[in-house]
Design a protein around this nucleic acid. Structure first.
Lengths: 215, 215
DNA sequence: AAATTATTTCTTGTATACAAGACTATTGAC
DNA sequence: GTCAATAGTCTTGTATACAAGAAATAATTT
């Protein structure tokens, strides 16, 4: 792939942030990171700068980079936008999906089911991500697909919190089933609405999220 | 504001790209830029890396950064997503706008009108941007506002192309008027639909855009 | 003893130096 | 004359060095 050092570092550090290894509000020490990865500060800085541009880090001049710690209000807003984009992807997928897309979607759906049956939350969390990706791909809009994937990554830590809630995994899977039906039937409006509801964090789900954030 | 060099450079280079001073496909020479701004290559690189993360530049390892040159298909997709986000902002603005928001929106609308009357396309182009920003602000969703502003910036060069089309300025202003009405009436659905249509590049407008791209 | 100021230390931000891959031009072979 | 291979140059990618601002600590004053 002929990747550069700073690109690898960027992905590495990003996943550390997104999986919570770097806590929100934590400061990233350039020298420490340089030592950890066995490189100089230069590529570390370049990686940090990129993550800043994406909105994962905040750079305070002369005071280092800290992991963004969004207020609950803002997390809610992010889910709102995500819901709209996912709805859009679902509607397009309903209209445009090919046979290949259908097979991929069904396969991803089935893997989610296995995780539900064996009650493996972590595995569901992972397969769920692939399920959503299958929808983005089926939308056949490269830009929309990218936007959705980026948002999905950024919201990953909070999505994980949601699955902690009792029975959320089963409820989520039930919603998936209806979404799959709508898409494969070619019912764009239904697919949009179902996905929007599936993703949005409203009512109880919002307070559940807030409660889990506190921990 | 105690800004850093690389932040100023980032904004400077970004505006050079967005206004077309750097053509799509053009390679950015680090040493040349360093000489132009009177700094070393380091902050230039850092600015370039950030613009890469935003999606304005593509970095080909060991071969430099080039200005992204999206295919018409992709530009279309970007407008589609933008239309959806703007519609969302409009719907929220209809529900949530304060008196202050109303005043700002009306003021921005009036400035657009003056540009139309005096037939100053460039000025309309500028005032139009402020008009849309007023809507984003009235949505009272900080994240949505940012997303919309970012997309707006990225699509700036193509928006400019559209205004070249005969009478587009007048048509655009007419649409603005109806959008303002819908928002101030609190009619969220109408605001969403009108804004979506206003932004989307469909039918003739798409072929007009393609035609102008060729030049 | 508390607070404020000065000094020291540590980290970031920028410049420069060096290494390595990509492009170019020249030379040689067919 | 054209194509290929090799040498040379140029540009990027990484490391190191240096400068400057912020945080921490020590010292002095009230």
């Amino acid at each position: 792939m002929a990747e550069n050092t700073f690109q690898k570092l960027r992905d590495e550090i990003e996943s550390d942030i997104v999986t919570g290894r770097f806590a929100p509000g934590e400061r990233l020490d350039e020298m420490q990171l340089a030592a950890r990865f066995g490189v100089s500060r230069t590529p570390i800085r370049e990686a940090i700068l990129q993550l800043n541009a994406i909105g994962l880090l905040e750079i305070r001049p002369r005071r280092g980079a800290i992991v963004i710690d969004p207020a609950p209000q803002r997390i809610f807003e992010m889910f709102e936008v995500m819901a709209e984009l996912e709805g859009m992807a679902g509607a397009k997928a309903a209209r445009r999906h090919t046979d290949k897309d259908r097979d991929a979607l069904l396969a991803a759906h089935e893997k989610c089911e296995q995780a539900v049956i064996s009650e493996e939350t972590d595995r569901y969390y992972y397969e769920n991500e692939l399920f959503h990706r299958a929808i983005y791909a089926a939308s056949h809009s490269g830009f929309l697909e990218e936007q959705c994937a980026t948002m999905h990554r950024r919201l990953r830590p909070y999505r994980r919190l949601q699955l902690r809630v009792h029975n959320r995994m089963k409820a989520s899977f039930g919603e998936h089933a209806r979404i799959v039906d709508a898409i494969l039937e070619g019912n764009a409006d239904a697919a949009r609405d179902l996905l929007r509801e599936h993703v949005a964090v409203q009512g109880d789900r919002f307070s559940d999220l807030i409660a889990n954030l506190a921990k």
